[in-house]
Design a protein around this nucleic acid. Structure first.
Lengths: 211, 211, 211, 211
DNA sequence: AATGAATGAGCGTTCATTCAT
DNA sequence: TATGAATGAACGCTCATTCAT
């Protein structure tokens, strides 16, 4: 009995995952507004109505995707902050997480970047807060290193956090829409390093530096 | 007769502008997908059938907004490339244009950033090309300075261009959605400088530099 | 110009009427819950969407029917109260109005009796008040005749009003569902008289009266 | 074995009753069309699939409620006709049954009056016959007393039956929707008497009678 | 008997677009 | 040019009903 119930619960959870995965795929392919519930159901290989058995509505599906994945980012920053004392390492961990995720599951990253970040203007309170927390968290980390004299203290750490994620995001977008292609020499690792190093050191050659 | 025709043409152009302005406002307020043609017409103070005299459909309105404004950015980069030999000046001109525009007409910038740049995934050929040209143009400028030894030549200039615009875009987004507020000390000018300087020099203090 | 606008306004009003009439017919035929918007549109000979041009939703159509017709009943009672001093005459005017209306437009009466009275349990404030006003108004009239000694003053006039309308309503229902048929001798006029007389005098023969 | 079967049968019957009671409650609360099977199941504390073990469909539940209760009314009229020779007593028994039932189980009465009696227009053959039988039965009783000279023989007894039940029904409706409240002096008994007496004697004072 | 996952037809509503005036 | 009535495809969502366990 117990076992049966557990099994059923597990099967149920699996079905939900199936729908979620289908949704991620379809959102990435056609965009949230352009896709229909039936696209999701078809892709998941389930009946139309079943989607509504698991989710209140289309928006709720997107919310679930957001919560599951944005939460991960939250944790990654926390872990990075704890596990290393080097700022460079911390930033690299964040970049690595996102770029690796993009390798493994580009659809999810795309939905996060395009469908959620894009609609951030229209986010309501609880979601907006969750969204913002990631930036605040990185800003905290930066602030800490400012106070240790490693970073220019005159600058707003929040703005720096936005700057950092902005670079990352648009580069990702470039990859996603294929207007930006990794050069022949660029390994994923070299891109990770470049992103972090450029953020920390800038792109000028030391030769050309005056100030 | 001639005059009358001109007048009429001018009046027509004015009406078109009226609708375009209304569209910008409404797109910014509710988002492209969430707003209706009638919202635009109401805001413009015209009958909604009239919108179809001036534009083929809803998409065409967004296209017009895109073309008019993205074209400006194109020109700004060209001008900047010509009018100064200093890379810093060139970049500053671009940043200044965008941030000033955001001061003067935040709705336009919002629509460009949120409704167009973010949905670039779904752009079709001609629009996508126009979109991409801006990045290529900036990349060219950067490549030129690489060849002059001012910038690290090992890096992909296109990627650097994406990085630069990405920072700018997300900071703008932060301002637009009010999760990022200009600090009390931050003048618009100081933000412009910081963006360019950080891109060129990074954010590390010289004291903490080892390499 | 003026004329053209007026004409258009009139044509519009006519179209609305067309839809309203179709709705009355369809509501009467299949019942409010069982009919679809498309039934109304088809019956009216207009496009599906036009119904929504004139009415917010299905409920709003029923509301309009209610308001237009229930308001008439209101006025009829008022007029009857003013134009005659005889209670019998007043009641007869009310009965006559309803039964005549039923002859002329049985569908409307049916919708009023079945769809609105039935859902009276679920009426919200403003509609419920309008609904109730008719009963209150008749109760006032009865109360006045009580105070003149014509009617038994020990009884609740409101309850008497409900009793009166209840008789009328169920008889109408009987006719509507054809479980009650006017007998061969019964003219409409005789039924009107019977209803009023029975209400005032009861149905007992004087011979059998003891009290 | 026998016993076990009986027990099981009893348990089954009990479950069915549970669902039926829940249905009555929910139909009364939200209306037949506005409630879902799951509302009934939830209220009954069972899985909603179980509802389909006991009933073919939603309609069948309503039918069962109708049959169980309308059948009682049938019997009440029969009993009244047999047990007393006085018409007043017979009518009083019917009124008493209904009003007492309304005291004890207002939900059932409401469902009978609002969901069934009011939608009688849409009843199909077998149900319609059952519905109608009650009126016919009362009409028979009245006809009998007409032939004994107690009641005005010129009137259609069926119409009188409708008139009588109509009064009763709308007064009940008034109580159900709380637009009619029992006055402070009105006991339930006085209302029963009034209904019957008014039907038999009318509401005019003898002083004002001319005919 | 009991559960609740699964199905899919049905329907209300929206809204871009067309068209008559 | 200007209006807004008219059209109807599209789609989100509901929920009665079936079915596997």
């Amino acid at each position: 009995m117990e076992k049966t119930k557990k099994k059923r619960r597990a099967a149920t959870e699996e079905k939900k995952r199936l729908i979620l995965n289908a949704a991620v795929h379809v959102f990435a392919e056609k965009g949230f507004h352009r896709c229909r519930i039936s696209d999701i159901a078809t892709r998941a290989g389930v009946a139309y109505g079943l989607v509504y058995h698991y989710f209140d509505n289309k928006e709720a599906i997107l919310n679930t995707i957001f919560e599951e994945n944005w939460g991960l980012l939250d944790k990654v920053i926390d872990n990075a902050a704890e596990q290393s004392s080097e700022l460079r390492e911390k930033l690299r961990a964040v970049v690595a997480f996102i770029l690796d995720a993009h390798q493994l599951a580009p659809d999810i990253i795309q939905v996060m970047v395009i469908e959620i970040a894009r609609s951030s203007k229209f986010l309501k309170k609880p979601k907006l807060d969750a969204y913002e927390r990631v930036f605040s968290r990185l800003a905290e980390v930066l602030a800490q290193h400012q106070s240790q004299g490693e970073l220019d203290s005159t600058q707003d750490p929040k703005l720096l956090a936005y700057s950092f994620f902005g670079s990352l995001e648009l580069i990702l977008t470039g990859y996603l829409i294929h207007t930006l292609q990794p050069g022949t020499g660029d390994t994923l690792e070299s891109i990770k390093s470049a992103l972090v190093d450029n953020f920390l050191n800038g792109i000028r050659t030391s030769a050309s530096r005056t100030s």
